[in-house]
Each structure stands twice: as structure tokens, then as C-alpha cells.
Design a protein around this nucleic acid. Structure first.
Lengths: 212, 212
DNA sequence: GTCTATAAAGGGATAGAC
DNA sequence: GTCTATCCCTTTATAGAC
């Protein structure tokens, strides 16, 4: 992504390596997501990517370095894909849509698998754990907090601290979902998510909408 | 702790085995909590318990069986130690104290480490994952829901579905705490937990207390 | 850069003595 | 029941040919 411009000259050298590199990264990420760090072997990655183990070690000095590289890249992706609240459609609908986008990451297991991996290697990658929290969950809270502050300024909402209110809204709409998914019990009926969002939104607005 | 009384008679036969068994269980549980299932080796358990590996395999036919046995026992313990809401001290204080007891399991890492282990091995032990969810989280929700229903009957609260309301209250008071702890970022300042509880309680009551 | 082959270490599980 | 010693497999990582 960074080297998109430039380097048209030595395609012959870097292109094969570049393609393989990308295949390796994809295969490794898939395996890490599915099985975690410890359970994923370099052998398995090499096999899935169709390369030899020696090639892996030509790209990355160790399994840890490969893992860290993937996490850092994914955190950048997380920050790019944060939900965006839009007041234009009305406060209620804006929050509803924000919640939908927010929960989408849980339902499709991306974010939860992410947490699971880092959590399981708890002591091992403290820097990566913090990077993830700041790139994903905390950034989401901050973005929503700014939006809530605008709504407060427009006298659509009442609350003390926007960061606290943002955390509370997100807590309400996610409910038990992350736990259920992380436990592999997330086979929910179709409308369940929508119902949870609706219930959470209702409670939040009941508590924070100005009383006429 | 349990066997302080009794068994003075056949100390010679069962006491050595019984004592060692208990030591093994304690050591294994400690290691599983700290390092997870995969990362904990039978060698390490044997060493920590001061027995040989062969002794472990005399007690349990496999590492999986040992692990499952510990999880099942811990789930029984979870159900015994559920928080108990008491209306006697007033609704607000009852919910506050319930929340304190609830979060206590997160702060002291018992429950979270538990989730972390099961989550990472959920593919391997789906039955244990469900057992855990029903023994801990779901049982807690049910207990609180019953209490909320009483409060509703006494016209202290207004809501539609007691199970939904219970989930919402618990979601509010736990906030980001489980995520922070599971990521190893849970070094919170002293009053933080109390503040989170207070804020969650305030929002919940604002939304669910009858308006005079 | 990429491969095959292998070293070195650690894992689960078992045999056999006591 | 408990131990020591060991089998056999998988893992990370590297050596050496091409």
C-alpha cells in the first residue's frame, strides 16, 4: 500500500516475491484468525501459501515478527474502517445505523477473532494489545463521543460526559453478543441483532432525550 | 479446605493419592488459567505438582480429560457463587451491590481468564463453552431478571421484558472492563469501577424508574 | 529467492520397575 | 500408585543445493 507509486523498474525481481509475500500474508492471517497464534505452525502457513518454510523465514525473521506485522497492518485497516455517524437522517436513525455498522464487525467475527488471538497471548504482545485497543474500540468510542457532543449542542440529547455516554450506548447495543461469539455460541436468529439494537437504543434515548 | 475433618482412618491408602490428586488439580488449574490450554504442557503440570507425568496419566486418561474435569468443577463453583440481589436496602443500593459483586469476578481476573481459555478452545470443547455460559453469564442474567421483576411488581421500575432489562443493566455496568482485562490493559485507577457502576446505574434508573 | 532436508527442542503418551 | 526412562510426533529454525 505504501509502495504503490514508484518501483516500476525492477518488477522482475520484486514481483514474484511481492506476489508470494501477499499470498503468505493472506494465508497466515487466515490461519491465525482461525486457530490463534500458538496453534498455528509455520509449517501450516507454508503449506497453505504453497511455499516452503525457508521462504517464510526469508520474509520474516521469526513467527512472532510475522504475527506482529499482520496485527499492525490490521490495526491500520481498523482505523480506516471505523463507523461514521451521520446526523442528517435524524438522531435516532443515525445511532441505529452506527450501531449496525459497529455490530457488523462482531457478527462477522473479524473483530472478535482479533481479540481472541491477542487475548490468548496476553503477556506476550502487550504493545500489540494496546495498539489494537486504541485503533479499534477506543477510536470508535471517540468518534461516537464527538457525534453525541454535536447532538447535545443541538439540544437533542442530555448527558454529562460524552465519552461516558458513548461507552454506555455501545455497551447497550452490543450486550452479550461479543461473549456469545467468542464462545462459539453466536448462532443467532435473524432478527436478533436488530431487536437488541432497538432495545438498547430505546433505553438510551429514554434516559438521554430531553423531557418535553 | 473441604477434607479438614474426616478420613483419619485410611490415611495410608487414599490420603497420598487424594492429596496428590488435589495438588495436581490446583497446579493444573493455575497453569491453565495463566497460559491457556495449548501452551500448558503435561510436563509443566507434573513439575508444578511435584509428581511424575505417569502419575498424571494414572489420574486422567489425557490432557483433554484433565482440562474438561477442571472446567466442569469450576462451572459448578460458578453457580454456587452467583451474586444475590437484596431489595431490603432499597432498589438503588441493591442494584449497586449486585453490580459490585458482578464486576468483582472481572476485576480479579477469575472469570475473564476462564472466558479466555474456553474461547480459545471453543472449537475443541463446544460442550464446555455452552456449559460455562449457562453456569455463569446466563445464570446471572436470570437471577437479576427475577429481581427486576419483583421491583416491577412493586412499581419501583418500568420495562417490557425482564430478561432484556437484566442484560441491559449488566451491559451498562460492565462497559469496557471485560475487554480491557482480557487484553491485559486492566490496570485501572482505584475509583474507576465505582464510577462506572454509578454512571451505569444512573442511566438505567433514569430510563426505567417511573416518572412521578 | 526458493527449494529439500535436517537439526535441536519440546510436546503427549507409555513401558516397566518398584 | 508412583517413579524413571523412553518412544514418537510436531514444532521452530537453519544449512546447503540450485
Amino acid at each position: 500500500m505504501i509502495e504503490t507509486i514508484a518501483h516500476p523498474a525492477h518488477e522482475r525481481e520484486s514481483a514474484p516475491a511481492g506476489r508470494k509475500m501477499e499470498i503468505v500474508i493472506r494465508a497466515a492471517w487466515q490461519l491465525f484468525l482461525d486457530q490463534g497464534f500458538s496453534a498455528t505452525s509455520m509449517d501450516a502457513i507454508a503449506k497453505a501459501a504453497g511455499v516452503s518454510k525457508a521462504t517464510l523465514y526469508a520474509y520474516f525473521p521469526s513467527k512472532e515478527a510475522l504475527f506482529a506485522s499482520l496485527i499492525v497492518a490490521e490495526c491500520e485497516s481498523l482505523q480506516r474502517d471505523l463507523p461514521v455517524p451521520k446526523l442528517s437522517a435524524g438522531l435516532s436513525e443515525a445511532l441505529r445505523e452506527f450501531a449496525r455498522q459497529y455490530l457488523h464487525t462482531f457478527i462477522h467475527r473479524k473483530d472478535v477473532a482479533f481479540v481472541r488471538i491477542i487475548a490468548n497471548e496476553s503477556g506476550r504482545f502487550p504493545v500489540l494489545a494496546r495498539l489494537f485497543y486504541e485503533s479499534g474500540p477506543e477510536a470508535t468510542i471517540r468518534r461516537l463521543a464527538r457525534f453525541l457532543e454535536e447532538a447535545k449542542a443541538a439540544q437533542l440529547l442530555e448527558f454529562d460526559d460524552p465519552m461516558v455516554a458513548a461507552k454506555q450506548f455501545l455497551s447497550l447495543v452490543r450486550g452479550e453478543l461479543p461473549l456469545l461469539i467468542v464462545l462459539g455460541l453466536g448462532d443467532l436468529a435473524e432478527g436478533t441483532i436488530e431487536q437488541e439494537i432497538e432495545a438498547g437504543l430505546k433505553l438510551f434515548l429514554k434516559a438521554c432525550e430531553p423531557r418535553v
